[in-house]
Simulated assay, not measured.
Amino acid sequence: MKNVLMGSFRFVYLSLLLWAPAALSAPAQRVLLDMASAPVTVPQPVERVVTVGAVPVLNSLIFAVGEGRSIANGLPAFAKHSRWGYQTVFAPQIAKLPSLQNPDNTPDLEALLQTAPDAVLTMDRAGAERMRRAGLPALYLAWTRPEQVKAAVRLLGQLYARPDAADRYVERFDHILATVAARLQRSKPVRPRVLYFNPATLTQPHLVVEWWIRAAGGESVTDDGRSIEARSFTMEQLLAWDPDFLIVVSREDAEMLVREPRFAGLSAVRNRHLLVAPCAAHTWANRTAEQPLTVLWAASQFHPSLFDDIDLAAETARFYRDIFGVELSPEQIGEILAGGPAANSVRHK
Results as ranks from 00 to 15, higher is better:
14 L>C: 13
14 L>K: 09
17 L>D: 04
19 W>I: 13
20 A>G: 05
21 P>N: 04
22 A>I: 13
22 A>G: 02
23 A>Y: 08
23 A>D: 04
24 L>V: 15
25 S>W: 12
25 S>L: 13
25 S>V: 11
26 A>V: 12
27 P>F: 07
27 P>M: 05
27 P>L: 06
30 R>Q: 06
30 R>C: 02
32 L>W: 01
36 A>P: 04
37 S>G: 04
37 S>Y: 06
39 P>S: 01
41 T>A: 05
41 T>V: 12
43 P>N: 08
45 P>H: 08
47 E>K: 11
47 E>V: 12
49 V>G: 02
49 V>A: 05
51 T>Y: 08
53 G>R: 14
55 V>C: 07
60 S>C: 10
60 S>G: 07
61 L>V: 06
62 I>L: 05
62 I>S: 03
64 A>H: 13
65 V>Q: 02
66 G>I: 13
67 E>T: 06
68 G>L: 00
70 S>E: 10
71 I>M: 00
73 N>V: 10
74 G>S: 04
75 L>P: 06
75 L>I: 05
76 P>V: 15
77 A>M: 02
78 F>H: 10
80 K>T: 15
84 W>T: 00
86 Y>W: 07
87 Q>R: 07
87 Q>K: 05
90 F>V: 12
91 A>W: 03
92 P>W: 03
93 Q>N: 12
93 Q>P: 09
94 I>F: 03
95 A>F: 12
99 S>I: 11
101 Q>S: 13
102 N>H: 10
103 P>Q: 06
103 P>L: 09
104 D>P: 10
105 N>L: 15
106 T>E: 09
107 P>E: 02
108 D>L: 11
109 L>H: 09
109 L>M: 14
111 A>C: 13
111 A>N: 10
112 L>S: 06
114 Q>N: 14
115 T>V: 14
119 A>C: 11
120 V>N: 05
121 L>K: 00
